[in-house]
Computed example of a mutant assay.
Amino acid sequence: MTAAQADLAPTRSDIAEKLGDLRLDRPQVEDGAALWRIARDSKTLDLNSSYSYLLWCRDFADTSVVARDSGGDPVGFISGYLRPDRPDTLLIWQVAVDAAQRGRGLAAAMLDSLSASVAKESESGLSTLETTITPGNTASERLFASYAERHGASVETEVLFDAGLFPDGGGHDPEVLYRIGPLSF
């Protein structure tokens, strides 16, 4: 990590300040229904089956994060996984924050915390973060551009899945792959 990266890297106190009364935690199976509701209520994410959120909380808890309010209820989450063919690459699947919690930097705090945790716990480390974003999703574009800037990494983009690949008759925009790296922690 360069001195500039170290200056931009969030500290635990930076994250705690952004979170206030919220805390970050590993998702539990019992959180699956709440994560499904948060994704549904976002009105921007592709909503997966409720079953998939339960499985995600069970099988990918180590590469995902949930934000909890003071009562322990989920108010935001990030789901992700390490790519099997690139175990040093964390793919972020979904980022969602409850409407009442938006605008306070929660998504950025979750993303910073999750990537630092994965970098520390992964045998391969973490050199690259990937996500897909549909064109026009400016909130996600800003989130990941600011993440790259904070971590002194470059961003490469390319269309990963063209709209024609989706089976729902052209009802899906293309998914643009954002590859952020190299990362160092």
Rank of each mutant, 00 (worst) to 15 (best):
Y53E: 11
A109E: 07
I92E: 02
M110S: 06
G171Y: 04
G80E: 02
L55V: 15
I133W: 02
S154C: 10
P74E: 05
Q28F: 12
W36H: 14
L90Q: 03
Y51D: 14
R150Q: 10
M110I: 08
A100G: 10
A9Q: 14
A107H: 01
F144T: 01
Y81M: 09
S124E: 06
N137I: 05
D112F: 04
A139E: 07
I180M: 00
W36Y: 15
E17H: 12
R26D: 09
P84R: 14
L165R: 13
G20N: 10
D31I: 05
F77A: 09
D162M: 08
S117F: 06
L114M: 11
S49A: 15
R86D: 12
A107K: 01
T132H: 00
R142C: 08
T132Y: 00
L114Q: 09
R26E: 10
S146F: 01
E175N: 03
D162T: 12
E158L: 08
R40N: 10
D112P: 01
G152L: 07
A96G: 09
S154Y: 07
R179K: 06
R12W: 07
R23G: 05
E141C: 06
A61E: 11
A9R: 14
C57P: 10
V176R: 00
S79K: 00
R40Y: 10
F144V: 00
T89F: 05
A116K: 06
T128L: 02
I15V: 15
N137K: 05
R23H: 08
N48D: 15
L22G: 03
H172N: 12
L47Q: 09
L45K: 01
A33S: 13
R142F: 05
N48G: 11
S124W: 02
D168V: 13
L160Y: 12
D112E: 14
L90K: 03
A100V: 08
W56A: 15
G171K: 10
H172S: 15
G71I: 03
S52F: 13
L82P: 04
A148K: 06
G103E: 08
T131G: 04
E130M: 08
I78E: 06
T131P: 02
D162A: 14
L45C: 04
I38S: 02
Y147R: 02
F185N: 12
D162E: 15
T89A: 12
P10K: 13
A153V: 02
I78M: 13
W56E: 10
L165F: 13
P74A: 05
Y81G: 09
S13D: 15
E175P: 03
S124D: 06
E30S: 15
K120L: 13
T131D: 00
G76I: 13
F161Y: 15
V29T: 12
S124V: 02
W36G: 03
G164R: 13
A145W: 01
L35G: 02
L183R: 00
A9E: 11
L160D: 09
A39K: 00
D25I: 13
A99P: 01
I15F: 09
R12I: 07
G80I: 00
L160M: 14
P84S: 15
N48S: 13
P135Q: 04
I133L: 07
S79P: 01
G105Y: 10
Y53N: 08
V159M: 04
E158A: 14
L22S: 05
G170I: 06
Y51G: 11
